[in-house]
C-alpha cells in the first residue's frame, strides 16, 4: 500500500492514466446501469438531435442516444483491447520463450517468420486478416492479436536469452531439473515484468487499431456500437451539420489511448528502473 502511494507521488501522469483506464473499465462493465437509454432503440423524431437534457451529447441519424451508445461502445473497445492484448501477448510470450530457450533451428524459423510479419504495418496486416475472415467481434480480436505476436515474441526471446545464462538456471540444472520445468519455473516468471509493460503499451494501439478497422468498415459489425464505426458513419456526412456525432467518439478514443499510454509509460519506469530517469 505504501509502495502504491510512493509510486503515485512519483508518477502523477501514470496516476492520471490509471484513473482514465479505471473509469473506462468501470463504464464498460456497468454499461447497462450507467447508460441512460437503450443504445439500440431508434427514435425517428430525435434524428440528429443536438445535445439537450434528454440527449446529453445528442442523438445520431436514427435517433439513438449518443451517450448510451458511447457507453456501450466502451464495452466493445475494452473487449477488443483486452482480448487482443491477452491473446497476442500470451501467444507471443510462449513463442518467445520456446524460441529463446530452445534455440537452434526452431529459433531461426520463428524469428524469420516474426521478421516477415513485422515488416508489415499493424493496421495493414489486421486489414488483410479481417478481410479474409469476415467482420465479427471475434475475428476483429484475432485480426488485431496476430500482428502483436511477433513484437512480443522478440522482446521475450531477447529477455530469455539473457536469463538462461544466469546462475540460478545453471544451478537448477545442477539439481537435476529438466529443461521444460526450468523454462516454466525459473525463466518464464522472470520475463513477466517486460511482458506486462509491453502488453500495457500495446493496449492503446489495439484500441486505435480497432477504431481504424471499424472506421474502414472491417471492424465490429452492426448493431454493436463501436467508437470507430460511430466516427466513420458520421464523419463524412454530418461533420458540419451535427459535429457532436464526430467529436465525442473521437474524444473517447483519444482519451482512452492517451490514458493507456500514460499508464504504460509509468509502469515501464516502475518495473524497469534501467529505462527510468
Amino acid at each position: 500500500m505504501s509502495d502504491a502511494l510512493y509510486y503515485a507521488r512519483r508518477y502523477p501522469l501514470g496516476v492520471i492514466g490509471a484513473l482514465i483506464l479505471i473509469i473506462f473499465v468501470l463504464t464498460a462493465i456497468f454499461a447497462g446501469v450507467v447508460a441512460p437509454m437503450d443504445p439500440l432503440t431508434t427514435n425517428a423524431r430525435a434524428s440528429l438531435a443536438p445535445p439537450s437534457h434528454t440527449y446529453w451529447i445528442g442523438a445520431d441519424m436514427m435517433g439513438r442516444d449518443m451517450l448510451s451508445r458511447m457507453i456501450h461502445g466502451a464495452r466493445i473497445s475494452l473487449a477488443v483491447a483486452l482480448g487482443a492484448t491477452c491473446i497476442g501477448s500470451g501467444l507471443g510470450a510462449m513463442l518467445g520463450l520456446a524460441s529463446g530457450y530452445l534455440g537452434g533451428w526452431f529459433d531461426l524459423i520463428v524469428q524469420r517468420i516474426a521478421e516477415i510479419m513485422q515488416s508489415l504495418p499493424l493496421l495493414v496486416m489486421a486489414l488483410v486478416i479481417t478481410a479474409s475472415l469476415g467482420p465479427s467481434l471475434t475475428n476483429t480480436i484475432i485480426a488485431i492479436a496476430i500482428p502483436l505476436i511477433p513484437n512480443v515474441a522478440r522482446v521475450i526471446r531477447a529477455n530469455v536469452l539473457s536469463l538462461r545464462e544466469l546462475n540460478y538456471v545453471e544451478a537448477a540444472r545442477a539439481i537435476g531439473m529438466g529443461r521444460a520445468r526450468i523454462a516454466l519455473v525459473h525463466v518464464f516468471p522472470n520475463t513477466l515484468a517486460p511482458l506486462i509493460v509491453l502488453a500495457t503499451a500495446q493496449l492503446g494501439s489495439t484500441i486505435l487499431t480497432e477504431a481504424s478497422l471499424s472506421f474502414l468498415g472491417l471492424g465490429v459489425p452492426e448493431p454493436y456500437p463501436s467508437w470507430g464505426r460511430m466516427l466513420s458513419e458520421s464523419a463524412a456526412e454530418y461533420i458540419r451539420s451535427a459535429p457532436w456525432l464526430v467529436i465525442f467518439p473521437g474524444l473517447a478514443i483519444s482519451l482512452v489511448v492517451f490514458g493507456a499510454n500514460l499508464f504504460g509509460d509509468a509502469l515501464r519506469d516502475i518495473l524497469d528502473p534501467r529505462q527510468g530517469d
Binding site: 544466469l166 546462475n167 540460478y168 545453471e170 544451478a171 537448477a172 516468471p189 522472470n190
Partner: peptide, 11 residues
C-alpha cells in the same frame, strides 16, 4: 556455485 547472489531465483 561461486556466486550466492545470483544462484537463487529472485522471484
Amino acid at each position: 556455485f561461486q556466486e550466492p547472489m545470483t544462484a537463487l531465483n529472485p522471484l
